[in-house]
Design a protein around this nucleic acid. Structure first.
Lengths: 139, 139
DNA sequence: AACTATAGTTTGCTTTACCAACTAGATCAA
DNA sequence: TTGATCTAGTTGGTAAAGCAAACTATAGTT
């Protein structure tokens, strides 16, 4: 989207594509889709219902079923019936899934490193601060 | 990918997902895929061969054929035989494609705005500067 | 002219993701 | 309690994304 009058927006979009390229590459190296990678990341500190997962991802419930199915078949995720609601299931990482998530996170960090390699220590700190856990925006 | 020791990396990944969410939404509102949106953006100031486009996107040639086909069928792109190489085609925006690209760029800018709404003018300038047209990294 | 390399296309496959229809368990009302 | 309704998740059907492999046609090379 070149004729972007706002250089910041332009930079954000460009950087987003760069980051996604890294994530895509790392995911592929583990033979997992970007979305599945993201699921693994989300589940590291959560054990949500399928519908909650759908909300996190902004996807339709029906998209989640197959996504989780495939990951379960691969031994990365497991389903657990919800205690409080007989209709619901909760999704959680298996040991293998947790290993993959950890390893992939490291690779993503390494892959992103070059994108900010030209920044000084203090510039990085500034960047991290400006991007801080979004005070108002949705997470 | 929570247990990311580097808060900057974490912020970049999170922001990338936020940006992609906006792009996805805008693309959907035009009934176009994220990849097609990206193609429209790329073609705004270029008229590449299919193979060059494949390189830009990091996709296989075979993925490009169908992608371009569908966009041509929608009247967003056109193929033009390359003068210098009888095997090659060049891809370019139609007027409709250019309109869509322009309009979408505006929507993306508007959608991203909230992500940086909490920043002061000077903080934005800093951010834009730190993200500047990556001096070393690949574009 | 014959080989080889390159540009694109086509076919077949899996995954993604949607929608709509469905099942089963929850919830609310009478 | 029974019935109406809502919600969680699954299933089936569809279009697109993207890869790999086989193929066509043009370039380039020897």
């Amino acid at each position: 989207m070149p004729p972007d009058p706002d250089p910041l927006v332009d930079a954000l979009v460009r950087t987003a594509y760069d980051v996604m390229r890294v994530v895509t590459r790392v995911a592929a190296s583990h033979d997992v889709s970007v979305t599945q990678m993201r699921v693994l990341g989300i589940l590291r500190d959560r054990e949500p219902r399928l519908s909650e997962l759908a909300d996190y991802l902004g996807l339709d419930k029906s998209s989640i079923s197959g996504l989780v199915d495939r990951a379960v078949r691969r031994g990365l995720l497991a389903r657990r019936p919800d205690q409080e609601d007989g209709r619901a299931s909760r999704v959680l990482l298996t040991a293998a899934g947790r290993d993959l998530a950890r390893s992939a996170a490291g690779q993503v960090a390494d892959g992103i490193e070059p994108l900010v390699a030209h920044l000084t220590r203090s510039e990085r700190a500034t960047l991290a601060r400006l991007f801080a856990p979004d005070p108002t925006a949705a997470g």
